[in-house]
Design a binder for these strands. Structure first.
Lengths: 212, 212
DNA sequence: TCCTCATCTTACTCCCGCGTAAGTTGAGTG
DNA sequence: CACTCAACTTACGCGGGAGTAAGATGAGGA
């Protein structure tokens, strides 16, 4: 069912850096499949075709191993967002690119997104903060764009950005769980349209809606 | 800091039903504050002013205790959504009411929303399914309304609904973590406007946007 | 007053999984 | 061929927390 990435003939010695990379890969597989708590250091070591103390020669403990992966993929998401928003000057295309980046992130890299969005270690302050900080930074990138084109306050622009990121995260995860109902491209387009309709020309309707 | 709900003078006997309710309340406090894994049955018992075996006379195990709470609050959220959508026939007001319900859910009941949205037991199939099913049912309620007014396909209407629910969940949680930047009412209104601008009159722009 | 039975307590057992002490192997060097 | 040192192994200590066995306690009826 789940093929070990590369558990070479248990007995092969590896130079330090290669081994470290391989251990991180093995750890990612196990953490993604089982979550932090149910993941056993023994299983990670096994999956790498190595014994447990080797793991501890590369990482001081289970937590640090996990945090290293979390850090890596959180940064990757923010970076993907940045690239998407810098890829064009057309705001409508920016919206599309932004959603595409989210869907790509969720679809790629061995489901690593589960570490970022579904961590079962959120109760640890360090993890909660990283998780919130990642959301924050994605929203900040989008917020800058919004502020350029609207006379909205900073707090409000930020909240709208959070809303857009929330849409992206939730729909991307839903889409992944239900492959088959809609192809990736169609899903991205649909949600991007919803977002663009929502955000474009915001100032124009603002005063009109105000009289409630 | 955290005041125990009602740890009556450790030594007071209670009739079975009262005790059960009190144990559920104590368990909720601990599960919310610590998450499933870090929550100890000893602490739950202590918080209720009772010894551990009493807990086991009311619930077969930690898991069942947790699932009882999860079930209760998941149902409460769906019910709040239903009420919000049934509260009016005006779709714009429906959107507002729907977001208000989400914010109220997040703001109320001792942060019980953390059980539904931030469970650290998602890796357990039973919990994952309940969590996804709750999202599904909320989206279904909204989807019915959308389908009444658009010629969109069922799959697409459902995906849009997921997007709206994602907006609500993410913004409500963000708002709760950052009280002070924006009052609840303003946040609800702002996000509701974004959503309404997004979906209202969907069919009108559909064909126009199609020519990309 | 004494009996009954539900409520509640103390004081364990047991398992699981992180982290480690101590010892082994083998590739490259003089 | 002997020496060295990093890479690796087996086998264990140990803490923490779920669940339990066996006994205490007290309200209410005969």
């Amino acid at each position: 069912m789940t093929a070990p990435s590369d558990a070479r003939a248990r007995g092969t010695r590896l130079p330090r850096v290669r081994r470290r990379r391989q251990l991180l890969a093995a750890a990612q597989e196990v953490f993604v499949a089982r979550g932090y708590h149910a993941a056993a250091m023994d299983e990670i070591a096994d999956r790498a075709g190595v014994s447990k103390p080797v793991l501890y020669q590369h990482f001081p403990g289970k937590l640090e191993l996990y945090l290293a992966l979390l850090e890596e993929h959180s940064e990757a998401l923010v970076e993907k967002q940045r690239e998407a928003l810098e890829s064009t000057e057309d705001n409508q295309k920016r919206v599309t690119a932004s959603f595409q980046a989210y869907f790509d992130f969720v679809a790629g890299d061995g489901e690593a997104f589960r570490l970022v969005f579904e961590s079962d270690l959120r109760n640890l302050p360090a993890v909660r903060e990283k998780s919130e900080h990642t959301l924050q930074r994605c929203a900040e990138l989008i917020g800058e764009v919004i502020r350029q084109d609207t006379s909205i306050s900073d707090d409000e622009a930020h909240l709208l950005s959070i809303a857009l990121v929330g849409m992206a995260e939730t729909t991307a995860r839903y889409w992944l769980n239900n492959h088959g109902s809609v192809p990736q491209n169609a899903a991205e387009q649909l949600v991007a349209r919803l977002a663009w309709r929502g955000i474009s020309g915001w100032d124009l309707t603002r005063s009109a809606d105000e009289g409630d």
